[in-house]
Nucleic acid binder design. Structure first.
Lengths: 359, 359
DNA sequence: CTGTTAGCGCGTTCAT
DNA sequence: ATGAACGCGCTAACAG
């Protein structure tokens, strides 16, 4: 096979009998660049024939842009972030955008160390997924070098542009559903140590209040003893063993709940496992509802009733939003802060909830 | 805040009172570059102080290298590839390598369309994960532009350098385990349409033969009616509904198996679900064993007995292998073909297998 | 409408 | 041991 020789803009220009400037202008086609249709065609044909495309580095060196969006994801081994990332990629393809996923270098020291200057310049903008220890450092850096970013499913408390499922509404929907099923003693299980769930307790209390249900402290379980460190070998305990034990403790209490609302499907599934192990049946003896509609919710048996985050909509909104920020020149801080796209989630009824048993 | 001005090699050179050539040589430190220790220190100090690092594009424009490895993953929404990718990242960090994940643009037309020239030049080498429709086109392109690649967990049949769990051994271990538990009628469930599992049938037959167990065609279930199209909305059926139905069909047959070996944990879990729905208990009535030791296997109840792929070892081997290929100059085709790292998997006993019931 | 040219920031000869 | 200068391939500004 002939040695593959890279074809440059010079080759194209020569072969088309024009100057490189014209080639460049035709390819970067700012609307209707002033080029005769005829020569434009000629150039395009040669480009096609040689399947030429500009050297990314040379172009980026000049323009300081790459056209690539960076997705920062703290973890891929669960069943939520992976699906979100896939949805993001579908949206990117749909909108003709290039997307690359970067993973953190470690859990310690916040996400700061993950964030090398190399990556900073490689991407035109960033999508910050979910929420590791803290994105504060990352965001600070991003602001210094003036790279736009959008937080995606990282929690409603995030500063700056964000698109997020309406977590408040989600917990309300779940609570209402349980309430209408006849449940009065509803437990809530979450982890305040995960920045994403930092305010979930408030949201749940609010949901309770809206139905004039009393808040019972003994039914509010905060699994806060484990930080979000997906790279740690013990991380898995946080969302399997710990929630299972918590659920068991709940049922052994003096006045057990008839339903358990979990802040995510992973917790919910772990709960059910813990319950089954002690002979408690779901949903006959106790109902369990999750949040996110992760893949695990249909893999599990019984299939999990949960609140769905509309990933496709979240994804396309995220890409679109970042693109528009990239387009407009430098909004100022306050304008940025105002950009919030809250997507309403919806109930998905499956098998893990039922009316409470007659007592 | 002061406008952030990018610091270049010129700034460093000026501030250190040397020429840019020296700065460059000190930073790219080819072993002991001929530079006086004294000025070297001086330069390093300024570099540190200004936290300078070379402009990726300028450097790449010159050297045609970026130091970045590209991970091509067909899917992230399951529970295997995401974990593998995280392991890869850990290995990369451990070995001081930069890693970025690229996702396919679509399922159709093979993976070819995913593979833009932009990405081709952005990465020094590639890790090809698992196996979508076919990596043939991708590999062909990679060979033309002479970019090294390593197939990772993409099947033992892949051409070129690869690191893979010993799939043959895995099925042997599983079969032996079941056999020693007392099982004689072992069913096998897989999907020959997934390139990765293309030869699994042979492997299983071989395993049976090694124990002098007869091959029973009615117990060999090939879920081949669904191609591997993770982006399709119906894809999930392939590994939830279809395996479940298959398992049910198996048990309703005239001579049902006492154990089912599944080609991956997703199938296994789906099987168990199907079984439970028809009142068949696992492992009391029938044993189920999976392969991969995916996250789902510990999330599920009962926890899945399975064959573990040693992800950490696979990951560090993959990174190391690609690095060494990157290091040596252009091995030829036959040398490439010889580079195969087969990692032995191991049994993980959990809850889904037991001796067959007395009949 | 089209051609020319000046860098973007860096690595790398080739002199010294 | 160090410095000077070239050019990687491209875009954008300017001249014609």
């Amino acid at each position: 096979m002939a040695k593959h020789k890279k074809v440059t803009i010079n080759d194209i220009a020569r072969e088309a009998g024009v100057s490189i400037g014209l080639v460049s202008r035709v390819l970067n086609d700012d609307d209707s660049a002033r080029v005769s249709p005829e020569t434009r065609q000629r150039i395009l044909k040669v480009v096609e024939k040689r399947s030429y495309s500009a050297n990314l580095f040379a172009a980026a060196l000049r323009t300081e842009r790459t056209g690539i969006i960076g997705v920062l994801s703290p973890n891929l081994s669960g069943t939520f972030l992976g699906s979100l990332t896939m949805a993001l990629q579908r949206a990117a393809v749909g909108q003709g955008v290039e997307l690359l996923v970067a993973l953190p270098k470690s859990d310690s020291q916040g996400i700061a160390s993950q964030f090398e200057w190399m990556q900073a310049m490689l991407f035109d903008g960033f999508l910050l997924l979910s929420n590791v220890l803290d994105y504060q450092d990352t965001i600070r850096k991003l602001q210094i070098i003036e790279k736009p970013y959008v937080s995606v499913c990282a929690g409603l408390h995030m500063q700056g542009p964000l698109v997020n499922s309406d977590d408040v509404l989600a917990l309300q929907i779940a609570t209402d559903y349980l309430y209408e099923l006849g449940h009065q003693r509803i437990a809530f299980l979450y982890n305040s140590n995960w920045p994403l769930e930092r305010n979930y307790n408030d949201y749940f209390l609010h949901a309770l209040d809206a139905r004039q249900l009393p808040a019972r402290p003994e039914l509010l379980i905060d699994i806060h003893d484990a930080p979000y460190t997906p790279q740690s070998p013990h991380f898995q305990d946080t969302w399997t063993i710990t929630p299972a034990k918590a659920a068991q403790g709940l049922m052994r209490g003096p006045n057990p709940p008839t339903a358990i609302l979990c802040s995510n499907d992973g917790f919910a599934v772990a709960c059910i496992k813990g319950l089954m192990r002690m002979g408690v049946r779901v949903p006959e003896d106790v109902s369990v509802i999750g949040y996110n509609n992760e893949l695990i919710s249909t893999l599990f048996y019984p299939e999990l009733t949960t609140i769905r985050q509309p990933l496709e909509e979240i994804a396309s909104t995220s890409i679109g939003l970042l693109r528009s920020i990239l387009g407009e020149e430098k909004l100022d801080r306050s304008e940025m802060a105002a950009i919030r796209r809250i997507i309403p989630p919806e109930l998905v009824e499956r098998e893990s909830c039922a009316p409470p048993r007659a007592r």
